[in-house]
Write a protein that binds this DNA or RNA. Structure first.
Lengths: 145, 145
DNA sequence: CCAAAATCTAACGTTAACGTAAGCTTCAAA
DNA sequence: TTTGAAGCTTACGTTAACGTTAGATTTTGG
């Protein structure tokens, strides 16, 4: 059952390029709940925990999101996961399921909207620098007055 | 000559959605040097100062850059501007001009590289969320087991 | 000219996201 | 079994990027 490989703190910090303090802190603020432990209370990270941490780091670096915002995003994702897991298993009325699905997709669309906004702004920013570079190169290629 | 319109602190904060403290701080750390003043030492922002501040805010919000990094970027841009302004006016040897141009374009390319990296990461992040949304919508459209 | 509103400088406060140090415990290899 | 490396918890320290008074000065509308 639980034969998924486990990683020690040092292995995780090596693989992800972060410090132990960061891992502890993420756990402290609720970004990494339920990290398993050895008998002597040393942490052991499973694959999914590693993936979750990677996801957090990506959200942070790429979106520039705060840990609070990241928690919200992770919550939305989990809500969707739980919903999908229980979709055919637990008893729901049509209305309940529709409402849950709507809420989940609404959040996902919200996140996607933020990302798209950010990409658009990045594009215009890029264009500005690209234009400057083009003009600099034009100067290079017309070497005399 | 100097008939370009000037803006008071409050006008700037209104237009840009930032506080006076932020303006002062940016000046303090060298992001907004040479802000003109009235006789009584009250600040007056000209158009180019406004544009510069907008640029700073964009770099911050979109790139997620620190003020330190932003200062580096602005410096690179200014260097390029100065170079272009003096390109035909001041006396330079071929080597000097080439070296300056090379350095400036190198920095611009460096910035562009960072932006491209960021856009690529954003794209993959977006794809992930997009896929999740698609699966949620698929659930919606297949309402029964 | 005068009172209210806007600005100034200077200085201390705040928050997020960790860093760092201390003292103790656990793990692993010889 | 020992012992040095790795981990644990607790708690105080740090840095960036402003926020927030406070008290004096300036500007401006009436």
């Amino acid at each position: 059952m639980t034969d998924t490989r486990k990683y020690t703190v040092e292995e995780v910090t090596q693989q992800l390029g972060i410090t132990a303090r960061t891992l502890h802190y993420y756990e402290e603020v609720g970004l990494l709940p339920d990290v398993s432990r050895t008998e002597g209370r040393h942490r052991l990270y499973c694959e999914s925990m590693l993936a979750r941490t990677r996801h957090i780091l990506k959200l942070k670096q790429v979106l520039g999101a705060s840990l609070q915002e990241i928690r919200d995003i992770l919550q939305a994702e989990e809500e969707l996961d739980r919903l999908k897991a229980s979709y055919y298993e637990e008893p729901h009325t049509e209305e309940e399921r529709d409402a849950l699905l709507d809420e989940a997709t609404r959040r996902l669309e919200n996140i996607l909207g933020h990302i798209d906004e950010k990409m658009e702004k990045l594009r215009t920013l890029r264009d500005g620098f690209s234009e400057r570079l083009a003009r600099a190169n034009a100067l290079k290629r017309s070497p005399r007055a």
